[in-house]
Nucleic acid binder design. Structure first.
Lengths: 98, 98
DNA sequence: GCATTAATATAGCAATAGATAATATACCAA
DNA sequence: TTGGTATATTATCTATTGCTATATTAATGC
């Protein structure tokens, strides 16, 4: 492992980790890595109040991890960032398998 | 991927991510996954002020990720948590290889 | 158009994090 | 014991985060 490489990426990586470092956002990313869901569905699945959920979605969106697609009144979100997908997968392997 | 499993772990995982979500702490973990280093060495390697460094080390220590061993006047730290090791390895793979 | 529902944005507040400066503790050597 | 070096802790300040409540925008059905 070459520390210099990590030094160049540290800002970007820590930004991603920061975005994932809240339990609700982590679960959001897990859900959205599996299926595309609209905000109302996420609200009931995760049991969050709408403004909080919207803020968390905003953080993930501004970080470039998720994308929304409007369909009528609903906006459907999914996880689009490959690195975030890989991270979620690794976290699942480390903490939920074995 | 079973979301329920992640739900049970979300608090613990987000705690770990929180600890890694600062560029200096991320680099600390990378360094300490490679070699045991004392505080003065870390200070010059990472270019941090001693009190900040000590605070970051304290956060990682209280989170159970690193352990210190006193040898004379110096305290040598290394990464001891297996999951954190696995995470750092995954992050390196995702962001620094490919 | 108007009313309704879905989603987003904003404001206010409490709690937390991070930087710096100053102080304290632990160890060692003379 | 005295002084020096290494590390930790504390205090203070500022900035950021997250929650709740409220307002605003967007789309639909009448």
């Amino acid at each position: 492992m070459n520390i210099n490489k990590m030094q160049g990426q540290a800002g970007e990586v820590s930004g991603l980790l920061q975005a994932c470092s809240h339990a609700s956002r982590l679960l959001l990313l897990c859900q959205l890595s599996q299926e595309e869901l609209n905000v109302g569905e996420l609200e009931t699945k995760l049991g969050l109040h709408q403004p909080s959920l919207s803020q968390h979605l905003g953080i993930l969106r501004r970080q470039g991890l998720i994308e929304g697609r409007r369909s009528g009144q609903q906006i459907y979100y999914k996880l689009t960032d490959d690195r975030a997908k890989a991270l979620v997968g690794s976290l699942y392997t480390i903490f939920c398998e074995q």
